[in-house]
């Protein structure tokens, strides 16, 4: 499977990783991605732990594969991802991926997520997590978010809150992301839909640990996203 993505395509693919207080989890994520031959744009979201130091240490191992940008203060996953999407344009990418840096996503899925872009089948991809593997509260919150995304943004997708997504640079140029927090996931899907960008859903694996469960879409976050969705209607 891995061989199907040419090295040339891998070299022009950049993975955007927003990172907030991920010092204990981020190292294997970065190493896995770098070993697969992909480039990375790391955005440290004003972490209060030594996330930035850990990223720098990994950069020493893979100096050409990692580009680091750092927000002075914590502004949320939306702003960090926006920063990554803007920063990545400096490196003339063809394909841009964004994924979580807490180890929830597997670098093994990168090839499959990129494939529809490389073959031209789609210009945007969302990695769909299996809801049956999620803890019940998480699965419930994500199901609610799918319904809300359908109601507010009129888009029907299997996983509206996935943080694993890929897009071509041409398509990225067409969309406009303004969300500051977790709303970014729904907003990305809305923008893809509103701009008639052909997109595909690719099943991905999700690695749940007590640490990865502490972040992401729980009922509280779902309620916050709902408020932001209502606000965005005006």
């Amino acid at each position: 499977m891995e061989n199907e993505i040419a090295m040339e395509d891998k070299n022009s693919t950049f993975v955007v990783l927003p990172a907030y207080n991920e010092a204990t989890r981020i190292r294997p994520v970065l190493e896995d991605i770098a070993r697969k031959g992909y480039n990375m744009v790391l955005v440290n979201d004003g972490s209060s732990d030594n996330t930035l130091e850990v990223i720098k240490q990994v950069k020493k191992e893979f100096p050409d594969k990692i580009h680091i940008f750092s927000l002075l203060i914590n502004r949320g996953v939306g702003i960090a991802t926006q920063t990554g999407f803007e920063a990545v344009l400096k490196f003339n990418p063809k394909y841009i991926v964004s994924m979580d840096s807490d180890g929830q996503h597997s670098a093994d899925d990168l090839d499959e997520v990129i494939k529809p872009l490389v073959t031209g089948e789609a210009q945007a991809v969302i990695g769909v997590r299996p809801f049956k593997d999620m803890p019940k509260s998480r699965s419930f919150a994500n199901s609610i978010m799918n319904i809300l995304t359908r109601i507010f943004y009129r888009v029907n997708v299997s996983d509206s809150q996935t943080g694993f997504r890929a897009i071509t640079v041409e398509a990225l140029d067409k969309i406009s992301i303004n969300a500051t927090g977790y709303l970014i996931s729904s907003e990305f899907i809305r923008e893809i839909n509103d701009n008639n960008i052909p997109f595909a859903e690719v099943p991905i694996q999700t690695i749940y640990t007590p640490e990865t469960q502490a972040k992401g879409t729980n009922v509280k976050v779902a309620f916050k996203i709902l408020l932001q969705m209502i606000k965005h209607q005006f």
Partner: peptide, 13 residues
């Protein structure tokens, strides 16, 4: 402001 500052200052080793 925070975004612009980050974009203008890529961190190198």
């Amino acid at each position: 402001l925070v975004k612009e500052l980050a974009l203008k200052n890529e961190i190198s080793l």
